[in-house]
Design a protein around this nucleic acid. Structure first.
Lengths: 351, 351
DNA sequence: CCCTCTGTGTTAATCGTTTAACATCGTGCA
DNA sequence: TGCACGATGTTAAACGATTAACACAGAGGG
């Protein structure tokens, strides 16, 4: 009962070499069909269910799995429509090549990580049996990214990176489009809500800005570029991009005596939270205050959110293809974005 | 460049045994700190990033990962709130023990699977490097379940099963509660919408019923039991549980000349689709037609859906714990459910 | 009749680690 | 002085498979 059945035990029981057994499972054409079925019969009889996955991975060097790093906490991730769309895209491509998706949790960054936490998380990254990985939205110097490239695993990223593969969008350009749109409407008091580990609602100092997600930085830069010279841009933390933290940020922002006339959020989820809070406070979104989102997930359409559409699903599909078939895919791709104007933005109110 | 750095190369470069290098990475206390840091220095210098994952898995017999089987297509799965809640629960527990989640795609059953598809899917199951797996909603004789138990991997299921671990709900009892609720309201023309591979909207024959998901069967049985003797229950396919297929089923159902007065759906997603279609057709849900869902996902509250709440997140947490720590967890758990009455159900209209 | 070729099966090296068991060497204690 | 012991390294045997390279036999061709 306790003894494990291996390729060898089957071979001995059948009176053949281990090679034969291996071929019986992997290369039917290498064996006479008579021999093959005899071996399979013996295997079944012994309760052998095929070659061990780990051993096979070691020997062949292939894992038939690709990893995805999550730095936000998996539980949160499953509620983020952006993440879900990306995973959906990845999965779509992977399903066609019997490849699994390995979700690797990395300690979420909340006010800095203890060394121990980082070490534990890295351990998960090191132990993952995968052929490649996607790291979406992580900086070059994130420990997980480092660990992955140290393992010299194929890695695909979503931000521009010196070496290595990536599929990205032009965040800066997208930011400029948002900025121009708001500028055209006459806004010069705008708040940008970014996802950040710091307390939701609190201001993000220029020093902090360097620590933001790259995409946040680029979008922010774009917005600033497109706004007229006199415009004032304040940056506040939207927490971890969730509905709850978005509401906190919105509440802080709308309570300010000099409340902004426009609020540009880093994601649709955040923007929808802002809309919700504003509405509850009796503000007419698109009149009294304008709100923009990012991504154009389904939520955006139903909320009437002005946002920037990015082809998330396509991004996922492409990332997966790059990992599965590196020779027939480009190293770097920039996907198009598009400003989608809906009812959540309007001309600046005259007070 | 092409040559791979291994534990051995590091050992040779450092002039120590491979055991020492292994200890340097795994058991700091086994080495003098001086030796350890020397080894780590050499490793860094050589660009060695730690023991190989596959080799380590083979040797230790642990993968630090658990699998989840998806028979619905991963892309769909990421849009199903039930699945997401379950994954969230699993992830929550796993995050504490640096364990990854492996999402294993299995060919979705659409009008029967070809042998080749099954074989390919099984291959993914066999190749997954995992310590255990959860199979939610699959029958005992599903090929994936068989493959997993053949591998003699710890397996946790969501339906009652002779041997093996499971965390379930009393689907039959839940069905009875729905049935009783509808009966109390005077309904005897009820349609049950189940997720099924067959064409959305078409009738499910008694013969087909045997092929339904176990949970569907049990809920159906419960509903039938609780309805009065004269009641008529028709069963229709809701497709794969998605919004779109739910709408199709609803359209077919509401167009029928003898349209049911109550529609009990297998999931909130399906029920919400029914509500949507009914509303569009000018029917007042809760008056002209009653609709019930299942699960009580967030969507249900915002739709005003009468439904049965089940603790999905808790289910996930429990399943993960059962896999991680079998010795300190029960083999079988039944979680409580609760009928949540909202506005989507009401007394049968008098025509 | 010899030679090549195809179809089947075997031999044996290798993938990169982990870890029980053993060796060695001060050290503290009786 | 003698001895048990903790601390620190090493030896070497697995873990369970894959796959070149080789061997052999019968078929077919010249």
């Amino acid at each position: 009962m306790g003894v494990r059945i291996t390729l060898r035990s089957v071979a001995e029981a059948a009176g053949v070499s281990t090679a034969a057994v291996s071929y019986a499972f992997n290369r039917p054409d290498r064996l006479s069909s008579e021999m093959r079925s005899r071996i399979l019969a013996v295997a079944r009889e012994l309760g052998y269910s095929g070659p061990d996955a780990a051993a096979r991975s070691l020997r062949t060097g292939r894992a038939n799995a690709i990893g995805v790093i999550f730095t936000t906490g998996l539980t949160y991730a499953f509620s983020d429509p952006y993440v879900l769309a990306l995973l959906g895209g990845l999965a779509e491509t992977l399903a066609h090549s019997r490849t699994s998706l390995v979700l690797i949790p990395f300690a979420p960054v909340v006010a800095g990580l203890s060394d121990a936490e980082v070490r534990e998380s890295l351990d998960a990254v090191h132990r993952a049996v995968i052929d490649g990985a996607v790291a979406d939205g992580l900086t070059d110097d994130h420990p997980a990214v480092r660990a992955l490239s140290d393992r010299s695993l194929p890695l695909v990223r979503s931000s521009d990176t010196a070496a290595g593969r990536c599929v990205m969008i032009d965040d800066r350009q997208a930011g400029r489009e948002i900025g121009r749109h708001l500028a055209d409407l006459g806004h010069h008091e705008v708040a940008v809500v970014v996802s950040s580990p710091s307390e939701p609602g609190c201001a993000v100092t220029p020093a902090d800005e360097a620590t933001l997600y790259p995409y946040s930085r680029h979008r922010l830069a774009g917005i600033r570029e497109a706004l007229p010279a006199g415009a004032r841009v304040r940056v506040v933390s939207g927490g971890n991009n969730a509905d709850a933290t978005g509401r906190l940020a919105a509440t802080a922002l709308l309570a300010a005596p000099d409340r902004p006339t426009a609020i540009a959020a880093d994601s649709d989820v955040l923007a929808a939270a802002v809309v919700e809070v504003a509405t509850v406070q009796g503000l007419r979104v698109g009149h009294d205050v304008s709100v923009t989102g990012f991504d154009d997930v389904p939520l955006a359409a139903s909320t009437g959110l002005t946002t920037v559409r990015q082809p998330i699903h396509e991004k996922g599909r492409l990332m997966a293809r790059m990992l599965l078939d590196p020779d027939n895919t480009p190293n770097r791709v920039t996907l198009p974005t598009e400003l989608v104007v809906r009812s959540s933005t309007g001309p600046v109110p005259n007070r």
